[in-house]
């Protein structure tokens, strides 16, 4: 089972199979407990929405948990003015970085599951470890390396870095995914005398769409949410939205309405992805959410 996380093909949590009849009381209790937890989970979301629509004066003490007495979008406007340039930069970062990691991961996953070479296991294990390392352990030299290579602070450098550090997880997801491709198909290709490139592009790639959806969603979310690389390799002027949000929220003049509106704005893209493509998102979790 430990392997389900690392190895299982990306798919949704399987549906429940046994529906044992239970007493209405037991069911009522179960729903009650579930609802209590639901409220706890949603509490911070409530605070975010409510506070973001208040004037700053209302965000403290007595009225803290109440609905706004005076509804205002000034927090949202201020947050949008501060954050909007960085949001576009976040898209410009997360989209290409996830695509490149996914393409490389797909090729690697194919080779490691279907076109293995001696010691492929060792290579795979070394890739996997790269997924778990605390990135702090490479941060100082990484900053020096980007300097030596002449890569300036900002989005372009972050694209390269996220592409590279996304390779392990993407490789893992695709390797597990391709392991489920019927061997017959591959054999047919071999008998056919097809080379690796044809086998990959003509047999594997057409089957890969679900794998790509899962990896792209996963990579997009983690690149979008990244703060550590961003803070070492970019600034509020040329970095992604997490940096700008931290500056807005951790700034010296803490304005909770704007900070909370900002938190909602910055979370919106990943939440939309989660709501629209949640099925695959969970697939990604199950397949290899072995990622910090």
């Amino acid at each position: 089972m430990a392997t389900t996380t690392l190895v299982a093909a990306p798919e949704q949590v399987p549906p429940a199979r046994t529906r044992r009849p239970s007493s209405p009381v037991a069911r009522g209790v179960r729903y009650g407990v579930l609802l209590v937890f639901l409220v706890m989970i949603l509490l911070p979301a409530y605070v975010l929405f409510v506070t973001s629509l208040k004037p700053p004066a209302e965000t403290s003490s007595a009225q803290a948990w109440l609905l706004p007495q005076e509804w205002t979008t000034s927090g949202w406007r201020q947050a949008w003015d501060t954050l909007s340039p960085s949001l576009w930069r976040s898209f410009a970062l997360a989209i290409p970085a996830s695509i490149m990691s996914a393409v490389l991961g797909s090729m690697n996953g194919f080779v490691l599951s279907r076109w293995r070479f001696p010691r492929a296991n060792v290579v795979f294990a070394l890739f996997l470890f790269g997924m778990f390392i605390p990135y702090q352990a490479i941060m100082l030299p990484l900053v020096e390396l980007t300097g030596t290579l002449g890569l300036p602070n900002g989005i372009a450098t972050l694209i390269v870095v996220h592409t590279v550090f996304g390779i392990p997880i993407c490789t893992l997801i695709f390797r597990n995914y391709y392991a489920s491709v019927p061997e017959d198909l591959m054999e047919a290709a071999r008998v056919d005398g097809a080379g690796i490139w044809r086998a990959y592009t003509q047999i594997i790639l057409p089957l890969s769409a679900p794998g790509f959806v899962v990896t792209l969603i996963w990579q997009f979310t983690s690149v979008w949410n990244d703060f550590l690389f961003a803070i070492f390799l970019s600034t509020t002027q040329n970095g992604p939205a997490t940096i700008a949000l931290q500056a807005l929220a951790g700034g010296q003049l803490s304005n909770y309405s704007a900070s909370m509106a900002g938190a909602l704005i910055v979370s919106a893209p990943t939440l939309v992805v989660y709501i629209v493509l949640g099925r695959y998102f969970i697939g990604g979790l199950m397949a290899g959410s072995v990622k910090g």
Partner: peptide
């Protein structure tokens, strides 16, 4: 291609 986009970016 990723590396090439750098020039002229940001606050340089």
């Amino acid at each position: 291609a990723g590396c090439g986009e750098d020039d002229g970016d940001g606050s340089q």
